[in-house]
């Protein structure tokens, strides 16, 4: 068996057994920048894991999320998400692929001209969920994030914490296998930050794989989860119940 064949066999075994994300020697360079944003990263994440990806600004965390979302195609190596090589996805296959990924951003990215209900229902409309089912699913997820009473409110009138809960509800309503959260507490005060983190932990307990990109040591160190630390595009440590010291 050659080296390549052995690597392939290992990867297939990992995906087959319990793997949900596999980054195989992944590099990503932007043409306009000199140094690669991500350099020879190999990372395995199993189903149901809660993983923090930490690092200073420019360490490659957000590029990693973009690679997982198939917003970017790696310049080297392969990204496997739910056994699919993102490089091999055709443009028309990307929407269906993304429906298995819930995404939450630091700036919430809500549809500002619509109310809470419409923002969450939008994710269901995209996959053409029948109206009757939608009317059941949306209130249920809104009550899970604690916004059942505010379903008619315009999202612009909500606090930052509430807006992030709407974004979370939208990310979860289609029951994704993986939840990607890019600095979900970056724009929130400590109380709201903890509320969001508690929600993410609860979602994880229900079986969803959660990947949180952050540079908040307080949150990372108190959650006692797996921590993948990055610097200059490379993984410098990967520990269960790891700790993080922000050097920014």
């Amino acid at each position: 068996m050659t080296r390549r064949e052995r690597k392939k066999a290992e990867r297939d075994k990992f995906i087959e057994e319990n793997g949900i994300i596999f980054l195989d020697d992944v590099s990503m360079s932007y043409p306009e920048k000199g140094n690669p944003a991500v350099k020879n990263v190999t990372l395995k994440i199993e189903k149901g894991e809660f993983v923090f990806i930490v690092g200073d600004s420019g360490s490659g965390k957000s590029t990693l999320i973009k690679l997982l979302l198939r917003e970017l195609i790696p310049t080297g190596g392969d990204v496997y998400v739910m056994a699919q090589n993102t490089r091999k996805l055709r443009h028309s296959q990307i929407p269906k692929f993304r429906r298995n990924l819930g995404v939450v951003f630091q700036d919430f990215r809500l549809l500002k001209d619509r109310n809470v209900y419409e923002n969450v229902a939008f994710a269901q409309r995209i996959i053409e969920v029948p109206s009757r089912e939608m009317r059941r699913n949306v209130p249920s997820i809104l009550s899970m994030v604690g916004l059942a009473g505010k379903y008619k409110a315009n999202v612009r009138k909500l606090s930052g914490g509430e807006q992030q809960r709407v974004a979370l509800a939208r990310a979860l309503v289609n029951k994704p296998s993986i939840l990607l959260a890019d600095e979900p507490t970056g724009n929130l005060d400590p109380n709201n930050s903890w509320d969001i983190m508690d929600l993410l932990a609860e979602i994880n307990e229900q079986g969803t794989t959660v990947i949180v990109v952050t540079h908040s040591p307080t949150i990372v160190n108190s959650m006692k989860k797996r921590v993948v630390a990055m610097r200059m595009g490379e993984i410098i440590s990967d520990e269960q119940e790891g700790e993080y010291v922000n050097e920014d």
Binding site: S92, P95, R98, F122, I126
Partner: peptide, 12 residues
């Protein structure tokens, strides 16, 4: 952009 991240098709 938001629609695309959620998984909306180009047509939608």
């Amino acid at each position: 952009g938001i629609m695309k991240y959620i998984g909306a098709t180009d047509f939608f």
